[in-house]
Design a protein around this nucleic acid. Structure first.
Lengths: 351, 351
DNA sequence: ATAGATTGCGAAAGCGCTTTCGTAAGCGCT
DNA sequence: AGCGCTTACGAAAGCGCTTTCGCAATCTAT
């Protein structure tokens, strides 16, 4: 790995401005103890020379860190990249740098990333994405982050409530309920759920919402196929194939996120199963492409960009005595992937 | 901004291992000048104590930087997030941290981000996304990066050739040619091009390919509507509306990236213009959702994930005397959004 | 006027690491 | 035994910044 070379230092600026190093530092940091006149001169020289402070030295010397670490499950998943977009939007305004780390949906890796960020001494850590239901791992992460916060670090989490930090929380349960109710009202009863990894709390929450909807109609989740696979497109594909094979009379599929819904749709398209004619499909999140899919996906909208922004806002605010929670709105977006059942004869794998 | 608190330092490890600070540093860095026995002891203690070096101090002291800065035009554009995925994949393997910055497609902002990364003393900078045709800005960025490389920094660029650095280059012109030829062979002649920002070199290259295809069939780009808008979905929408208004007899639209193609498709869907029956549409890039669109998009596939990986590989290799170029394959992927023209009567805005 | 409180600034001490330089010990050679 | 040469390690100097501390100079109060 290379090492960068000589650069303009603060001493150079100080010299050119005819002041001491200390004064120059104070002037640029906006600390007082410097006359307006001198401060102006320093700022002026600094601008002329195009001086940019070395953040490593600054941080090392105990200065404030200006980078925010963002941990996501997967960078190239639209759900996370939209959240990242929101974080970056606000960070840019505040002149903060965002460092994105991805955990690959592996709780151990996530913990390692968090440790790394803490070691980096970033000032703010934002953790996006569902928590894991393994209590040991959550506890470990929580302890690590607790010490970090104790030491002055700021933490905010998105879509997760178990980390003892300020949180931005979509109402996953209510969303699940809305989705379930929508399908039930259309008249579906043979509903299958593509649930994603069992280890994710988000999955559990959304599932609980679906269960509640069913309960309201005198049905139960226990009687329906619930397939746990990976929380990504490929997982949706697998689940869809299993459902078509084992429960060919299913008329509606609830995927607990849009990525999996896209996988489901792709399988249905390959098999030429009409959506929504023969099968209704719903997703969750409303990622930006959901509206462009074939057919346009009925889903629950979460304001991902706002969620990212809100999380950074929370982290930026002075730390409160107890962790704050901000919940986000959600809205059922009905598009073309759902309809009443029974428009077409049921699918037969051998036809 | 908070400052993190006290942490385990290298001296602590050294003390516990009964060696000097210097020896501990050497042992952990794998430098020689330390006996195997002592080195083992230090590593052992370090592991037991869970020591993680402070990268700021390390970098400041002239050590190797382990973070790579990735500059993209827009984080939440799938084209870039797939590239980022590739970079991160390899970086993770190499135990490097990736810091993603986005420039918002603004060359000035991009330059600022680059300066920031250099100031951060990251060891590697990867710049993804088209260059700008403004020669002044490119020159400035090039100068900045040149000095950085002079000083030992590593730079790689993706899809851009003007920065005097190792580059991963998709053959945009050949891709444009493939797209043009495909439509011409289907029999289209009233083709419109949705070109994206004029200031991007990628746009110019792809356009040149289209022009070459036309030329081969005795046609010329000059005779066709070429609409320059933003290189994103919304730009595609605008362009599509303009084309439908001003050139209602168009039978095929070439969008120079998938994002804009998605915008085009969304407008056509709203107006209930059948694709490909009445209008064929092609994109460029083959982002992962392209296959799931309505209809599935005919496009040119670029291996974005590989491109990200390749760029980091190039940057990791010892610097060559002159900048290296690796070109990527591309492949026309014919899906359902293209067909021969004239299957249906032309669109009339007043029907 | 003089003591005490401000204010504006410079000197210098770190932050935690890497690296250079110096030294003591161990080696083979004459 | 004496010489150089290598090897293993410690002391100490910095990397570029922030901050504490102390000292003039200036100001307020008596």
């Amino acid at each position: 790995m290379p090492k960068p070379g000589p650069r303009l230092r603060l001493v150079d600026v100080a010299e050119r401005a005819g002041v001491s190093l200390a004064t120059a530092s104070r002037a640029l940091a906006g600390r007082d103890g410097v006359s307006e006149e001198v401060a102006d001169r320093v700022r002026q020289v600094s601008r002329e020379l195009g001086y940019v402070a070395n953040p490593f030295a600054r941080t090392l010397a105990g200065g404030a860190s200006t980078t925010v670490g963002l941990v996501v499950h997967q960078v190239d998943d639209p759900y996370f990249s939209e959240i990242a977009g929101g974080v970056i939007q606000l960070a840019d305004q505040q002149n903060l740098l965002v460092q994105i780390c991805h955990s690959g949906r592996d709780p151990d890796h996530e913990l390692r990333q968090i440790r790394h960020l803490i070691a980096q001494r970033v000032g703010i850590i934002i953790i996006a994405g569902s928590g894991y239901s393994d209590p040991r791992l959550e506890a470990e992460a929580k302890a690590e982050l607790g010490a970090y916060q104790q030491a002055g670090g700021r933490v905010a989490v998105i879509g997760r409530h178990s980390l003892g930090a300020d949180a931005v929380l979509p109402d996953n349960e209510a969303g699940g309920l809305a989705l379930g109710s929508h399908l039930l009202q259309l008249g579906h009863t043979r509903i299958a759920v593509v649930a994603g990894t069992e280890a994710l709390t988000t999955v559990a929450d959304r599932l609980a919402g679906v269960a509640a909807a069913l309960h309201g109609h005198g049905l139960s989740l226990a009687g329906l196929p619930v397939v746990h696979t990976d929380f990504i497109r490929e997982g949706g594909r697998e689940a869809a194939e299993r459902i078509l094979r084992d429960h060919p009379d299913t008329t509606a599929i609830i995927a607990l996120n849009d990525a999996m819904a896209m996988g489901v749709l792709s399988v249905l398209r390959e098999r030429r199963i009409p959506v929504p004619g023969r099968m209704s499909v719903v997703g969750f999140d409303d990622v930006s492409v959901a509206a462009d899919l074939a057919p346009a996906l009925t889903t629950v909208r979460l304001p991902m960009t706002d969620m990212g922004r809100m999380a950074l806002e929370l982290a930026l605010k002075p730390r409160a005595a107890r962790s704050r929670r901000r919940s986000t709105g959600h809205r059922l977006i009905v598009r073309d992937s759902t309809a009443a059942p029974g428009h077409l004869p049921p699918y037969s794998p051998h036809s």
